[in-house]
Design a protein around this nucleic acid. Sequence first.
DNA 1: ATTTACACTACACCAATGTGTAGTTTTCTA
DNA 2: TAGAAAACTACACATTGGTGTAGTGTAAAT
Lengths: 212, 212
Amino acid sequence: MVTISIIEDNVFARTAWETALNSEEDFVVLESFSSCEDAIVSESIKKSDVILLDIGLPGISGIKGAEILSGINQNAQIIMITIQDDDKSIFGSLQSGAMGYLHKSVSPEELIEAIRLAIKGGSPMTPQIARKVLKSFHKFNPSHDHDKLTEKEVTILNYLAEGKSYKKIADEIFLSVDGVKYHIRSIYEKLHVHSRAEAVNKGQKLRILSKL
Amino acid sequence: MVTISIIEDNVFARTAWETALNSEEDFVVLESFSSCEDAIVSESIKKSDVILLDIGLPGISGIKGAEILSGINQNAQIIMITIQDDDKSIFGSLQSGAMGYLHKSVSPEELIEAIRLAIKGGSPMTPQIARKVLKSFHKFNPSHDHDKLTEKEVTILNYLAEGKSYKKIADEIFLSVDGVKYHIRSIYEKLHVHSRAEAVNKGQKLRILSKL
DNA sequence: ATTTACACTACACCAATGTGTAGTTTTCTA
DNA sequence: TAGAAAACTACACATTGGTGTAGTGTAAAT
């Protein structure tokens, strides 16, 4: 049995989903809420395998809600169902623990399919969302070749991210302290920054720093 | 007409895909390669809408290959088809510009479906890959409450990422320089670091820093 | 009412950083 | 093989950064 909770302020959408899902033999909608505030204090959340969550809610937003709910029930599959498709909504939701992201125009069949996918360990997303997510991973293809860091610069940048001093880095890569300084100068130049903190920040944004 | 290139060192897989795809009326496989080296110098790559790419290739790996190929043809949809499912392969590929990631066990029908999805602006992925990708977005739910940064600390951490000095930050948030120092001390303590660079690094890893 | 914790200000001090300038060696290229 | 670019080494110096220590006011907890 797949237990489900729904949080959606629009009555029509809420009841429509509820009936659609309850008509599945192995699905049961435990409870429906019109706000996160109501849901948070309910026992149903703790017993839910799946939580369907709208973003545009009065009071606590769906994004904040996802964060709280995923704290209450770590095992729940949170699926956002929303009309928002802006980056902030999408990535905010995903950061907050959502395991799926669907547009409100989904058909009942698609919704059911999505829930089955989620409990099997998948992540239901519309193709457009999936594309946005993937794109967010792409390395910025350095348009100017001269702004591309060399291999040595990349390794040094990684040491910077670890907070190592000139001396420590010098020892690690068998260079003089000033040799290290030399490379860091060009890193700064290429990234257009003037400090370690900035360099690390840009390095992450440009996906130069390895993300183990 | 959807033009396709294939790069795969295994002859059987290569020819199997080729025939399967060519049997589709609106698909045409321009050329098949057994290595990235061969593909890079070919004209077919520039004319391809879709490039199917293996990771475990001799010589230039599929990951490095994806990076080069996406530089040659920005408009091509690069889809990895591979047996590797480790994080390094997956995220390396995605960083290098892949738009999809499939397991080698895909059926011809699924492959065709995936290609159609890709050219429509979607991102074909197996559910397990999608889940991994989504999980990589999740905020680390700070296990210890006392390690959670306050609102003010978060804003200051963001200033640190921008490389601002104590003085600049102090001016921005109407505090004394030592007041700023006070907060930075607790940031360091909570993140267990001893410098700006490290703090920024951890802030990114823990997804505390806003990623606009 | 007293304690405790927190947010802040303040001062001091040394190590580390960022940058200018300059000389040397290695590597690539024409 | 000459000449240029890149990779280093070296020195100097003002600024900033990290940290120890200490004191003040305010709000919450006991």
